[in-house]
Each structure stands twice: as C-alpha cells, then as structure tokens.
Design a protein around this nucleic acid. Structure first.
Lengths: 253, 253
DNA sequence: CTCCAGATGAGCGAGTTTGCGCGAGTGTGA
DNA sequence: TCACACTCGCGCAAACTCGCTCATCTGGAG
C-alpha cells in the first residue's frame, strides 16, 4: 500500500476511534509496528495527529501529553455534537471567526457549501474550506505552527484588530469552576484575546472533558465575556450554573 | 491515446481517488508504468499533482479557469532554471519574501530542508513547505483566492508593512521593453507594491516568455526598483540591456 | 515509399522504504 | 525505591521504486 494511502487510512481510522495503540494501528493497516510507528511520527510532526506514549490521538489536543491510558476515549462524538449545535446558530451571509482547535474544525466541516464568510487562524479549517466556492475564506497571517495547525504571532493579532465579525466561535483547553476560560498554549493567548475584541458575539465551544479544566495555564477571559456556551449534557452542572448566572445562554447537547 | 488526453484522464481519475500508486495508474490508462511515470513527473513538475514515492496525490482542485495550473508545460524548464539560479542566492538563515506564481513555487521546492525563513502570500508555497521542520514559514493573511492560490487584500498589505525582509523574489506577468514590470491581476498590484517596500533587495524572476510582456495591465514598478533580474538566455537582449543600464545585475540561465 | 522527430517500453544502477533485532528509555506496581 | 514489562529509536538487510539510457515504434512530411 502507498504510504500516502496508509496515512489517509490511518487518519480516518483515528478519526472514528479517537485513540489507538500502535499495535492495533499496525494490524488495521497491515504493516509492521515499525512502519506504523514511523507513520505516526511523521503525521505527528505534521500536526495531523497527536502522538502519545503507546499510540496516537485523533487530533492535536491542547492538553499536555498524558499517558496513553488516561486519554479520554472518543471525545470526538462530543465535539461533533457541539459543532452541530454551533452550526445551527449560523445564518447565510454571516461573518464568522473560527478559533484554532478540532471542535471548530468540526464546525467548519458543517459549513461546507454555505454562503458565509469565514475568518480563521486555523489551518485545518483552511484546508477544509479552501475548495468551497460558496464560502468566502479569509486566512489570518502569522507564523505557521505545524503541530497545532495554526498561525500565531503579532501579524495574526494585527490582522484581527483590523476586522469586525459577527460571531466568534472560541475553543479552550479547559474551563474552571468559576467560569474562567483557560488555554495551555501561551502563544495563542494574545491571539484569542484579540479575537474576543473583534467579535460582536462570542460562542464558546467546549466538550464535557474540558471541565473542570485543570489543564490550562493562562486565563483567556471570564464568563462575562461569553454570550453563548455550547457543551455536552454531561458537563459539570455547577460550572454551567455559574455561566447562566453571568447571563450566558447555555446550550447542552 | 494522445498524451494530452491521457494527462486529462489521469488528473480526473486522481481527482476522484485522491491518491494512487503508479501501477494502478498505468493499468487504468492502458500504458506501461514507464509512461505513467513520465506523465506523473511532467504533471508533478507543472504543479498539477503532487508526486509521492510510489504514486501521486491530487493537487488542490482548481476552478475551470486555472491561471495557475494551465501554465504551459514547455515553459517549465525555463521556470526551473530561473528558480535554480534564484536558490543559489539564498544563504542559510536568510529571510525571504516569496511572491505568488509558479516560478516562486519552483523556488520554494528548492528551499525544502534549508534553514531559512520564508514569508509568502503564495498558498502553493505554503502547501509545499508547511511540513518542513527546517523552514520557518510565515503566511500572510488575507482573502483566499482559490484559483490563483494566493491571499490578497488589505490584511495582506497590512501584514507586509509590518515586516522587513532581506530579499523579495518577485514574479510578473510581463516585462515591457522599457523595463516596466507588469501584472495582469489588479488585486495583486497593491500587494506587490507593499512587498517592494518591505524588502532590502529585490530579485525579479521572469522566464523568457514574459518578454516583451504585452500581457500585463498594471505597472508594478520600473527597472530602477530591481536589484537582480534572473531570466533565460533566450530573453529579449534589448530589454535586458535596459535593465543593465539601470544598474540591475542581470543573470541569464 | 522513405525519412525523421517524438513517444513508448524494457533494462539497469542508485536511492528509498520496509521489517526485524537490539539497547536504551519510560510507565507500572510491589 | 526497585524490578518488570512495554515502548521507543536506531542500524541493517531485503524489497521495491526511481530516473536514466537505449532500442523500438508511431505518425506525418516530403
């Protein structure tokens, strides 16, 4: 089998299963573990999956690397559900700002063929929508971070400050019980803050696994800055209550 | 079957399947693997597909109108020669600004693995270099123009104005006998002008076919703004003389 | 009909990828 | 803390693919 074909297959399997050990991947691809390992390393460096000890996770998580056994299983269904609810908020003609991360990528997939304007620093979103004639795509500038599939830096911030969008769909690496939105990759923080300033309305997309959010290291904003929170039904009720008290519309799916 | 017909067929098959091994392609086209290989090499060099070890991957789809893909294949050797000469100017650690177009894409291919910083509005260059760990890649922001594989607009200009680079590698759609550098796509003009302002040194890359250049509609700059001109030996001598008189170092390959 | 330029297919050395074995490193549990 | 089990990355040999060369073939011009 062609290496590229194998890569595609690997990513699609990972996309469905969420997380797999090396041996399993090797078997499913019909190659030795050595080759599977090499593939994983390669794709990991390109940022198309996240390598963990003993296997790989579907997509770059912004959480720090954790031992294989502790990684949550199949977070992906949660992400898809959240993305579907987010897509329902979008009307034709809207101007949207999509944050980095995989949840927003899921949203981008649902926007295919819709006549909207998408602004993003998320290179995965660019790959997803670049061929779509219906979508007006605006890519933010900046330094390319292959692992996170994003652009960052002062160019990104500068671009954002020159824009005004209807809705920002924001991701996060965690949410504290007091409603603080956290991120663990510090170079993304100024970008996210700039995004908050450019949006009339802010929609926070977080899967249940992001609560209680002991993973982040930087505080992006508090609940008062969020207009709508979309998350799963299994998310921590106490935290959701904090958001509701801060006049945030909480949508659970 | 005619070679051009075969090329079309190959691209259409590849467009649907995404990625195919050489043997499969040869069978589907009813030719030997040697011929299939030759076709793949040719189309790969022209940027209409991406060659991988053992087969080929479809290039990002382009709309029917493809100013980017339909560039003549016979022109390609010229472009490669120009790009090779340009690559020789590059030293490790340099900061380069790459204009849109296929000649600069050829240059990007030669920069793979080199420890340089590449700034570009050329999305084809981004695709080419994004997974290269040696290259620091800075992508300019702006509206995505899928068929030209570039970003344009005020965000692009704004980004460029905040940068200062060592060398700009500039493309053009034509060069007038008086040394005027022309471009035919008017939205790119302000971007190119901004690029000129951001570079300490300007290297103009034009193949012989760009002379005498009745194709452009907007004047980007005159020869006085160019430091080095790299072109083919067959290019119009009178025009080259004009550049030399304007103190431009003219390199013919 | 012959000639000729360009295209095609087979053969060959060089380079790339694959799978296995080994030593080192990492996670787990007593 | 220590030992055991597992995983990782590297080096090597085998299999495969690549690009090149050369002989053959095709189709059009004279």
């Amino acid at each position: 089998m062609l290496r590229e074909t194998r890569h595609e297959k690997l990513l699609s399997i990972l996309g469905e299963e969420g997380v797999l050990p090396v041996g399993e991947i090797a078997t499913r691809l019909g190659v030795s573990e050595a080759t599977a390992r090499r593939d994983l390393t390669e794709l990991g460096r390109a940022g198309r999956l996240t390598r963990v000890y003993g296997g790989a996770v579907a997509a770059p998580t912004q959480d720090e690397e954790r031992p294989f056994g502790e990684v949550e299983i199949d977070d992906l269904a949660d992400k898809e559900a959240v993305a579907r609810a987010a897509a329902e908020l979008v009307a034709d003609g809207d101007v949207l700002l999509l944050d980095i991360g995989t949840t927003t990528l899921q949203l981008a997939k649902l926007l295919r063929g819709r006549p909207v304007t998408v602004v993003t620093s998320n290179l995965a979103v660019y790959e997803e929508l670049r061929d779509d004639p219906a979508v007006t795509l605006i890519l933010l500038g900046g330094q390319v971070r292959a692992n996170y599939r994003s652009v960052v830096g002062f160019l990104t911030e500068s671009n954002i400050r020159q824009l005004r969008v209807g809705r920002l769909f924001l991701g996060a690496s965690g949410v504290l019980p007091d409603g603080s939105v956290l991120d663990s990759t510090h170079v993304e923080v100024p970008v996210k803050r700039a995004m908050l300033g450019a949006a009339r309305e802010v929609v926070l997309l977080v899967t249940a696994g992001k609560f209680p959010g002991d993973t982040g290291l930087a505080r992006i904003c508090g609940p008062e800055r969020i207009d709508t929170l979309i998350t799963n039904k299994t998310s921590d009720p106490a935290t959701l209550a904090v958001f509701r008290e801060a006049d945030v519309e909480v949508v659970t799916v």
